[in-house]
């Protein structure tokens, strides 16, 4: 009951934040020099063309009316029409979203495996050379912009050693897994670099805790001790961190999709930005906010399930 109330409050908080994001996007849209029409048509447009597009976009009406129109559109899932595609933004995004989601799932899988194994290795050899290397590696990983990791991987495993395709998304399950592998590894490097340190800390703290000593005293060792008693408790702070990472993961996807020419929402965003397709850019921005908030909410649910103490006192 208490937990349900807590989650209901979190959902309400998410909705308020999303409203804030939509308001922010609306305000920025209005702030554009010359209004959205002039920005979209570029400097070669005639005043009459600009006026016509402004009328079409409803930009000639007073501000409150424009805001109401914008909110009503959002409520209906109407994000306007993309300038470069000439189709509704929602349609364009819906076509691209699956690629990004697949990439995201792939990254979670790979970085999950990497984080758990590296952190366990480091924590079980605490203070040794292996531990040291695993603690320093993230510092290097975090200093590398994701696009550069992508370029290096592209060079090594698509050009020098042509194991993976250099770009594009191949059809079919195997093709998809192959063409998404290097992009997913790129982002996993970034994500694991953030998570490994936290999980290592969590593992060490948990291994020293009383309930683990008790489990050890009962004769538990190895995988049963680790999976049954240590990991679930040690993972809680790392899961919280993961919800913070979700935004940067999505930002990384924007970049990596462009490097590997993957037809996802990141590619849309960059194309839209380059060609000044304001409705498309705003639509993708709003979607990233929704995705990040959804992940955060999911993490809260998982957190509440793992830790009975979660919730308002």
């Amino acid at each position: 009951m208490r937990r349900a109330r807590y989650l209901a409050r979190r959902v309400a908080g998410v909705l308020v934040t999303l409203w804030g994001v939509s308001l922010l996007l609306f305000v920025l849209l209005q702030l554009q020099p010359g209004g959205p029409a002039e920005a979209m048509l570029g400097i070669t447009a005639t005043p009459s063309q600009i006026a016509a597009l402004n009328r079409e976009l409803g930009h000639d009406r007073p501000l409150p009316a424009r805001y109401l129109h914008y909110v009503a559109g959002l409520a209906h899932g109407d994000l306007g029409e993309s300038v470069i595609f000439g189709r509704p933004v929602t349609e364009v995004i819906a076509a691209a979203l699956p690629t990004t989601l697949k990439l995201g799932a792939y990254v979670l899988l790979l970085s999950g495996i990497a984080t758990v194994s590296l952190a366990t290795l480091a924590a079980s050899r605490r203070g040794g050379p292996v531990d040291h290397v695993i603690r320093v590696l993230p510092m290097v990983g975090l200093g590398m912009p994701s696009f550069w990791i992508a370029v290096v991987l592209l060079f090594l495993f698509a050009l020098r050693l042509p194991v993976f395709p250099a770009g594009g998304l191949q059809p079919g399950l195997v093709g998809g897994l192959r063409s998404l592998f290097l992009p997913a590894v790129t982002l996993s490097v970034v994500v694991s670099a953030i998570l490994v340190r936290s999980l290592r800390r969590g593992l060490i703290d948990t291994m020293e805790s009383d309930h683990v000593t008790a489990a050890r005293a009962r004769g538990l060792t190895g995988a049963r001790l680790l999976l049954g008693h240590v990991l679930p408790n040690a993972a809680i702070p790392t899961l919280t961190l993961l919800s913070l990472v979700s935004a940067s993961l999505l930002g990384g996807a924007v970049v990596v999709e462009s490097v590997f020419a993957l037809p996802g929402i990141g590619q849309l965003l960059v194309d839209g930005f380059r060609r000044h397709d304001v409705p498309l850019v705003m639509g993708v921005a709003l979607l990233t906010a929704v995705l990040v908030m959804t992940v955060n909410l999911l993490m809260d649910v998982v957190h509440a399930l793992l830790d009975p103490r979660v919730g308002p006192r």
């Binding site: 994001v21 996007l25 920025l28 020099p33 935004a247 999505l250 930005f273 850019v281 921005a285 906010a289």
Partner: peptide, 22 residues
């Protein structure tokens, strides 16, 4: 703090791109 929440909801690179448009 609400404004901070809103700004942090979007990936940094996305926020930067929107601001650069303006």
């Amino acid at each position: 703090t609400r404004v901070m929440d809103v700004v942090q909801t979007m990936p940094v690179i996305v926020t930067i791109m929107i601001l650069l448009l303006v």
